[in-house]
Amino acid sequence: MSDANPLLRFDYLVDQRAAIVAAVLEHLELTVATVALGLLLAALLAGVALRWRWLRPTISAGTAALYTIPSVALFALLVPSTGLSRSTALIPLVAYTLVVLVSAILDGFDQVPRPVEEAAEALGLTPRRRVLRVRIPLALPVIISGLRVATVTTVGLVTLAAIVGQGGLGRLILDGLRRAFWTPLTVGAVLSIVLALLLDAAFVLLERRLAPWAVRRTARP
């Protein structure tokens, strides 16, 4: 038995390499689309929360509540209205990134030191310049670490999007489970784990590049 159905059969890997590559690309595509849309929406929500302060608790609580909805439930709930389409996967995926991204943006802006903002204003920088040159750059490290968490989480959730017929590597996993044929399952699971870890590491590097002052600061004793 174990010979016929080992955890990994190399001939399958060779035969199916095109399909595997396609699955990885689809997985990445869905992840990138999710995080990009999530960032856009989160920026809007954070902008609203910063502009109208009294809305902030509502927005924070709302995005947090979305996050507590079980992923299986959120994917499934949309099936009756959007069918087994890409939107059915995208909507919940984007919704899950919001809690991390909105709070990262707000935290990022919060931790811009008050004296720095005050100095920027007092020296005569325009409101636009203050946002673009001072607040956003200083919020960037926190926002990037939010993006990191959101991206990595999304890679994991995209695997689950297979239950509504989407999401690259997850389909290999479900396919393997359905057929009790372990090779696609192993390939799908291992690759999605590797993908998550690689993206995680990539963000660490990105953070170092984009916020050298913060890295130098933490590097000091």
């Binding site: 955890l7 968490v149 990595v152 989480t153 890679v155 994991g156 959730l157 695997t159 689950l160 590597l169 997850g170 996993i173 393997g176 489970l177 372990w182 399952l185 192993t186 799908g188 699971a189 291992v190 999605s192 784990i193 998550a196 870890l197 993206l199 995680d200």
Partner: peptide
Amino acid sequence: VNVGRAVPTFALAALLVPI
């Protein structure tokens, strides 16, 4: 902690099934 958070739960659980 970072690695633990990065590993997708569904993928990990699936990987453990045949084992």
